[in-house]
Design a protein around this nucleic acid. Structure first.
Length: 424
RNA sequence: GUGGCCAUGGUGUAGUGGUUAACACUAGAGGUUGUGGUCCUCUCGACACGGGUUCGAUUCCCGUUGGCCACCCCA
C-alpha cells in the first residue's frame, strides 16, 4: 500500500469469507423456514422508477425525503436504488399478473438495499435484508404466522435479550379519527413538547408517540391510546392476532407506541428489538399494508410482510459469541511426493471431489511435513499420502488424522474406502 | 443532515519533533528432500491522503477521506 489505492465508498464494505459464513447461515435459516411455510423466491431489480418508492413508501417519509440513492440515467429517467423490498414486490404482483395466481401469494427475498444515511455500527448504505410478503389475504392468522416466523428463527439461532414489539395502527377508517384526537391532545400540551416533535406534530403526529425525549415520553403517558380507538374491524383483527400469539406462546410485548416509518402500514405492525446498547436496536420488523396494492394501481388487496436486517443479526451473533456450526474446509487432503505421485494424486483429488467429498491437495507443495501441516490446519479427517513408492506399486496410504493410524490401500479403492469411512 | 471522538503492518496493540518505528497473531522460508497439531530460527509487511508550521513531521495545526458515538431514522 505504498501509493494511495481505492477504498469502498462510505457506508459500504466487503463481505469476506468470515462474514459470509454468518450471512449464509442466517439466510439459510430464514429460507428454510419460508420454504417450509410454502413461500417461494422472488428477485426484483436492484433499481426502479423513482416514483415507485415515492408513491409506495410515501412522499413524507424519511426514506423518500432524504435517504434515497436517486439519479438520472442517460435517457433522463429518474432511477432509484431500492431502499426497501415491499413496493417493488407489489409492483411485480401487479405487473406480472399475480392476481391470477392462487391467493394469497407468498414470496420471500434476500437482497441488498440502499439508503443514504449517516453510517454507524449496524447502519450501512448498502445492507442486506431477508424479507417475506403475503399478498391477498386478510386473515389474522397470516399476521401471526409471519410474526412467528420472524421471531422463531432468531430464537433458534440463540440470540439473547431480544424482544418482540407488537401494535396495531388501525386503518383509514379509524386512524384519521385517532389522529385528530392525538393532535388535539398535543396542541393542548404543545408547550411541553421537544422542538422536533413540535414540528412533526403537524405533519405526522403519530411519530410523537415514539419520541425518545423525556418530556415527550412523559406527556405521551397520558395521550389517547390508538388501540383503544380502533374501528370494530381493526379491533377484532388485532384481538385475534394477540390471542393467537398467546396461544402459540410467543413472548410479545404490546407496545402501544410502536409506529413505523413507512406510510403504507395498516393494522398489525411489529418490530424485533435488541436490548444491547450501542448498535442500532431494531433487527427487523413488518406489518400489514392493506391499502398499498390499491395505492399502486391494483384492486383493493390486503397484504402483509416483514424484513430482517441481516447485518445487524450478524453483529449481534458476534457480540453474543454465538458459534456457527463447524464447517470443515476439507474432509480429505491429498499429499503427494514427486512427479509421478503428483499425477496420480491429482487424478485421485478429482475423483474424490466428483464423489462429493470435500478434498484439497498439496499440488504446489513438495514436503510431506508441510502438506500434513496444511491438512491439519484445514481440519481434514483423512489424508491420503502418495509417494514414489506408492506411485510405483499403485497404492496409497490412508491416514486418519486424529489417531495418526494409517493403512496402505490399492489406489483404485481409495475413493470407495473413504466414502465408507466418512459415513461412520 | 447536525454535533463529538478517532485513524501506526492483513489483525490486535506500543511508541517518538531527529529512532534500523517495537511486540503478538497471521502469512512465507527453514530446522526435518517419507509423516501434522508443540517448539526454535529467519523473512515479508505499517505511520490513511493533501497542505501548513519547522532546519527536520508518523508525531503539532488545517483540510479531505474513512470509522465510531450521540441526535435523527430505521434494517
Amino acid at each position: 500500500m505504498a501509493k494511495k489505492t481505492f477504498q469502498t465508498v462510505r457506508g459500504t464494505r466487503d463481505l469476506l469469507p468470515k462474514d459470509n459464513k454468518y450471512f449464509d447461515f442466517i439466510f439459510d435459516q430464514y429460507v428454510s423456514e419460508a420454504k417450509n411455510a410454502g413461500f417461494s423466491k422472488i428477485e426484483t431489480p436492484m433499481f426502479e422508477d423513482t416514483n415507485l418508492f415515492v408513491r409506495g413508501v410515501g412522499r413524507e417519509t424519511d426514506i423518500v425525503e432524504k435517504e434515497m440513492y436517486t439519479f438520472k440515467d442517460k435517457s433522463g429517467n429518474s432511477i432509484t436504488l431500492r431502499p426497501e423490498g415491499t413496493a417493488p414486490i407489489v409492483r411485480a404482483y401487479l405487473e406480472d399478473g399475480m392476481q391470477a395466481w392462487p391467493q394469497p401469494v407468498s414470496l420471500y427475498y434476500s437482497s441488498p438495499m440502499f439508503r443514504y444515511d449517516r453510517p454507524q455500527a449496524g447502519r450501512y448504505r448498502e445492507f442486506y435484508q431477508f424479507g417475506v410478503e403475503v399478498i391477498g389475504s386478510m386473515s389474522p392468522l397470516i399476521d401471526v404466522s409471519l410474526i412467528s416466523m420472524s421471531w422463531r428463527v432468531l430464537e433458534k439461532i440463540g440470540l439473547k435479550d431480544i424482544t418482540l414489539q407488537v401494535n396495531s395502527i388501525g386503518c383509514p377508517s379509524c386512524r384519521p379519527k385517532y389522529r385528530r384526537m392525538l393532535s388535539a391532545y398535543i396542541t393542548d400540551n404543545a408547550k411541553k413538547l421537544c422542538k422536533n416533535c413540535l414540528k412533526r406534530s403537524k405533519t405526522n403526529p403519530l411519530r410523537v408517540l415514539d419520541c425518545k425525549e423525556k418530556v415527550c415520553r412523559l406527556l405521551m403517558e397520558d395521550a389517547p391510546i390508538l388501540i383503544n380507538n380502533l374501528c370494530t374491524e381493526c379491533h377484532n383483527h388485532f384481538k385475534e392476532v394477540l390471542e393467537w400469539l398467546d396461544d402459540l406462546e410467543i413472548p410479545y410485548e404490546l407496545n402501544t407506541k410502536l409506529v413505523r416509518g413507512l406510510d403504507y402500514y395498516t393494522k398489525t405492525v411489529f418490530e424485533i428489538w435488541t436490548k444491547s446498547q450501542g448498535a442500532q436496536n431494531s433487527l427487523g420488523g413488518g406489518g400489514r399494508y392493506d391499502e398499498l396494492v390499491e395505492t399502486m394501481g391494483g384492486k383493493a388487496t390486503p397484504a402483509i410482510g416483514f424484513a430482517m436486517g441481516i447485518d445487524r443479526i450478524v453483529e449481534l451473533m458476534k457480540e453474543q459469541e454465538i458459534q456457527l456450526p463447524e464447517e470443515r474446509l476439507a474432509e480429505v487432503y491429498v499429499v503427494q511426493l514427486g512427479d509421478e505421485a503428483k499425477k496420480k494424486g491429482f487424478k485421485l483429488l478429482n475423483e474424490l471431489q466428483k464423489s462429493g467429498i470435500r478434498t484439497q491437495g498439496g499440488l504446489d507443495k513438495d514436503g510431506i511435513s508441510e502438506q500434513l501441516k496444511i491438512a491439519s490446519n484445514l481440519g481434514a479427517v483423512y489424508s491420503v499420502i502418495i509417494g514414489q513408492k506408492e506411485a510405483m506399486s499403485g497404492t496409497a496410504i490412508i491416514k486418519e488424522m486424529s489417531s495418526g493410524n494409517q493403512e496402505v490401500v490399492a489406489i483404485e479403492k481409495v475413493v470407495k474406502e473413504l466414502i465408507k469411512r466418512l459415513k461412520d
